[in-house]
């Protein structure tokens, strides 16, 4: 479904990606691991069109997307839940969800989706008219994921959804994501620091270091891998 081939990208003079190739098959969950500053966020930014790669190509459904505007990419069915949530803090929870559905025009469908997501995240119903900035960290992360789902994506890009969350909350979010993946068939491309959760959730994993893919394998194999275990799983 998503094919990233040999992309390179820079921030001004600093090159952050040196030829990264990744594939995310339809319906799967693929995770991306790596130390801080490895370029994980940068890869997602390239996919969602926030950053133009200087070389390589990105394909979604066989169509090149690496030169498209973010707006077009969202409309094609890719949704990016960014690092650090990036909610609209001063707008209400409801308005944030409506913004998630910005590219859609089916009023009834949107209403139905909000209802459905309230099933996953009951807290959002309670806080509907509250400014997003007044939610707790865990609630905000739930809102970010819900907002990402509002565009009815077929591919969900998640950047560290468990960052700064209590283990219990984080586990809850992963449970919901699994449900979303299984029941709604949404493909998930996940960047995560918490390698244990990520690998138990994902089918396949990539490890990037300093802008390059260094290992790729199925999650089970990665869990066995000596280096991965030492560096990311901590045992």
């Amino acid at each position: 479904m998503l094919k990233i081939e040999g992309i390179e990208a820079s921030y001004g003079p600093v090159k952050a990606l040196h030829g990264v190739t990744i594939e995310v098959p339809e319906g799967s969950v693929v995770t991306l691991l790596g130390p801080n500053g490895a370029g994980k966020t940068t890869i997602l930014r390239v996919v969602s069109g926030l950053l133009r790669p200087s070389a390589g190509r990105v394909e979604f459904d066989g169509r090149r997307i690496d030169r498209r505007s973010t707006e077009a990419i969202v409309r094609m069915g890719i949704s990016h839940v960014p690092e650090g949530r990036q909610l609209f803090d001063e707008m209400t929870v409801h308005e944030n969800l409506m913004l998630g559905a910005y590219t859609r025009n089916d009023r009834d469908g949107i209403k139905a989706d909000i209802k459905r997501l309230n099933g996953y995240f009951p807290i959002l119903e309670e806080r509907r008219e509250q400014p997003a900035g007044s939610l707790s960290g865990g609630e905000q992360q739930q809102l970010a994921v819900a907002r990402g789902l509002m565009s009815r994506p077929r591919l969900l890009l998640l950047d560290e959804p468990s960052l700064g969350l209590a283990p219990l909350v984080s586990r809850e979010i992963f449970r919901i994501l699994r449900q979303v993946n299984r029941e709604e068939g949404i493909t998930i491309f996940l960047v995560e620091q918490d390698a244990t959760s990520a690998l138990s959730f994902a089918d396949y994993g990539y490890v990037v270091e300093t802008g390059r893919v260094v290992i790729e394998a199925t999650s089970d194999k990665l869990k066995e891998d000596e280096n991965v275990r030492r560096a990311y799983l901590g045992y």
């Binding site: 909610l87 609209f88 707008m91």
Partner: peptide, 20 residues
Amino acid sequence: GLGMRATAHNPGASRLMGVN
């Protein structure tokens, strides 16, 4: 109007929502 307000608050996130 929603899109305009969102852009004023956080242009980066607005792009991710598909706002032009």
